[in-house]
Design a protein around this nucleic acid. Structure first.
Lengths: 194, 194
DNA sequence: AACTACATCAACCTTTTTTCTTGATCTGCT
DNA sequence: AGCAGATCAAGAAAAAAGGTTGATGTAGTT
């Protein structure tokens, strides 16, 4: 059961009794999406917070016709347009499945109930937010300080399991460079090794 | 300007002074969508009525895993999940762009204001609804009375400019037959001609 | 002035996906 | 039995997605 996976994840942050675990998992529903399917689109409010049980996602914005990737998510990551979700405003991001995937999603209102119901649940969501914030801070600083090549190398180092699963144009736009330039970096690297 | 196109259309049904035209057009906003992008999805309320300035759309329902096409729309047609739009209830249809397209859309509330503001606007929307209703009546009767082949021939006759723009599987599901059967009809027809 | 780090544009190739076609077989009607 | 049409499976054809390369440009450095 896919709840097991979610609960295992949650329990790695807060300890839950079996009843608590059950209570936490209850409001989540399983959703299957096919590759290339959108789960969030601009102008539609992002009503759920979603946990990736299986598969891969990309969230991105389009500005002046250019796609800018904000995030990738694979198993045991969360995906949503956070600005849309927490304020329950229309989304500005696209979130699309990069593979056939399975999500566990909880409605915004249900999440509020959970947090009210049990202090541990509140703690869990706080930890998620803090981790997310810290991660983005590291990312921003790193991006500001390093060259395109260094950013790519860093990505490989930190997310080796993403590399085979995200398309290169998406990775390029995540790392803030053109797809052509990323292609050249990879090429150069391959030659160096041989 | 794409408003011109809308106003020309409106004026073909009701006469408007220039001020009226301006007032009518004001609440419409232009939206660009790419091929394969959804503008309406089940469970989200269809908040806008949309006029197709450029491009093509298809609205369809999924029942028992089968897609059933309700409508196609190209330039100068309107597209929405009408049941969702007029009652402002969650949609049951998908509406997807078949090509890169441009819409002019008006919010539900703004439309109500327009209709209150000027009798002519009320008249215009009444005409749209009546035309739509009459059209669907013709369609239903025709479908009940004719064979798959006759329905296809009729479509060609009445909507020659749709033929090249809608995929065949979509047309088949609009005409109430399988894509394979439509393929055979087309094939037979081609042979007859040569 | 040359060099580095990167962008843009266009062409092209490869792989994957989508769409369409065909044959074989089945069903329910008349 | 014969017709209108469905279903299933296999392929072919067409379109789209993804990736690479070369040429050329630019802004900031050395």
């Amino acid at each position: 059961m896919s709840n097991t996976q979610l609960l295992q994840y949650v329990r790695s942050f807060v300890s839950l009794t079996d009843e608590e675990a059950e209570q936490f998992a209850a409001p989540f529903e399983e959703v299957h999406v096919k590759k290339r399917q959108f789960v969030v689109q601009p102008n539609f409010t992002n009503k759920h917070r979603a946990f990736v049980v299986k598969g891969a996602f990309r969230s991105y914005a389009i500005h002046d016709g250019q796609e800018h990737t904000l995030q990738f998510a694979i198993e045991n990551w969360w995906v949503s347009d956070f600005n849309s979700y927490i304020y329950q405003h229309p989304a500005t991001l696209f979130i699309v499945a990069l593979e056939d995937s399975v999500l566990l999603q909880i409605e915004h209102a249900k999440e509020q109930e959970l947090k009210k119901a049990n202090h541990k649940f509140e703690t869990f969501f706080r930890i998620m937010a803090e981790k997310g914030l810290a991660f983005e801070h590291r990312r921003i600083i790193f991006n500001l300080c390093h060259s395109a090549e260094a950013r790519y190398e860093n990505f490989i180092l930190n997310f080796p399991n993403f590399i085979q699963r995200v398309p290169q144009y998406a990775l390029a736009s995540y790392l803030g460079m053109t797809t052509e330039f990323l292609s050249r970096i990879r090429n150069k690297k391959a030659h160096r090794r041989s």
